[in-house]
Design a protein around this nucleic acid. Structure first.
Length: 263
DNA sequence: ATAGGGTTACGA
DNA sequence: TCGTAACCCTAT
């Protein structure tokens, strides 16, 4: 026959990811019938979408083949076991109402919904790595991804907070956003902590996007878009810096607090 | 219609 | 030969 194995193209993969971000994971039929992705995923069935998404999630979880076991995550993915203050973010069950049934801190250890306290920066890094967007990922996309894939329900306050440009009328360039803004007044941008590492990674993505935009300016690349991404990334960077400051003093912050920025 | 397990084909 | 990706089948 013609095609024993029909490999997924980048377009199909992107369409699938966008579909999941739009309608949510599980609505494969809806995604497949969506006029937006229908032309791309016409030759793919809803089952194919499910299988592909499963493969994507599976591969992304154990990236680099460093973990033989996919589900269990006894320890934080932090590379440095240094005794230095760590970032502790515990999911607050207060305002996580929407998609959170009566589940508390304890769940079955086999549950893949991260029963153990996971580093927030790790989630962001995971989202970035999993999205694999060549131009970097927007904060809202990252939030959506975390919500969907990790079954975390972030309050919309966080989304608004991250989306809304707080200030910085003088901010125009991405590189300046990466270096000067973060170190402003504090100078703790040393990439020595996982949180700052995540922020730096995000900033680097934006900077890389700028370089690529000059080379391959196809159709969806605009200066305004880049600037917007820079602003959002900068907001995330500031948030990470502030979090690190607080957590360095041994404070334990909940996602709820972070969402409302009351800490 | 979706989720999960199992099978087959391909590449390193 | 092992690991991964696409495909197939079945239970809910």
């Amino acid at each position: 026959m013609g095609a024993p194995k029909q490999k997924w193209t980048s377009e199909e993969e992107e369409a699938l990811r966008r579909g999941v971000l739009k309608h949510g994971a599980g609505k494969w039929r809806t995604i497949q019938k969506d006029p937006e992705f229908s032309p791309v995923l016409s030759s793919r069935s809803n089952i194919d979408l499910k299988d592909k998404w499963r493969n994507l999630s599976f591969s992304a979880s154990g990236l680099g083949s460093r973990d033989k076991q996919r589900v269990p995550r006894p320890k934080a993915p932090s590379s440095s076991p240094s005794p230095s203050p760590q970032l502790l973010l515990l999911p607050a069950t207060n305002n996580v109402a929407e998609a959170s049934p009566p589940e508390d801190c304890e769940k079955s250890p086999q549950d893949d919904k991260t029963p153990s306290p996971k580093l927030y920066s790790s989630m962001i890094l995971e989202a970035l790595g999993e999205l694999k967007e060549p131009n970097g990922s927007e904060v809202t996309t990252i939030c959506n991804f975390i919500e969907i894939d990790k079954s975390y329900k972030l309050t919309d306050s966080y989304a608004k907070r991250a989306l809304a440009p707080m200030k910085d009328p003088s901010l125009k360039k991405k590189d300046s956003a990466k270096s000067s803004k973060a170190a402003k007044g504090q100078g703790l941008f040393t990439a020595a902590s996982p949180a700052l590492g995540a922020a730096e990674a995000a900033a680097t993505k934006v900077a890389d996007a700028e370089a690529k935009s000059h080379l391959a300016n196809e159709h969806m690349m605009e200066v305004e878009r880049i600037g917007k991404m820079a602003e959002e990334t900068e907001s995330l960077l500031e948030l990470a810096s502030e979090l690190y400051e607080r957590c360095s003093r041994g404070e334990v912050l909940t996602i709820l607090q972070v969402a409302h920025r009351e800490f």
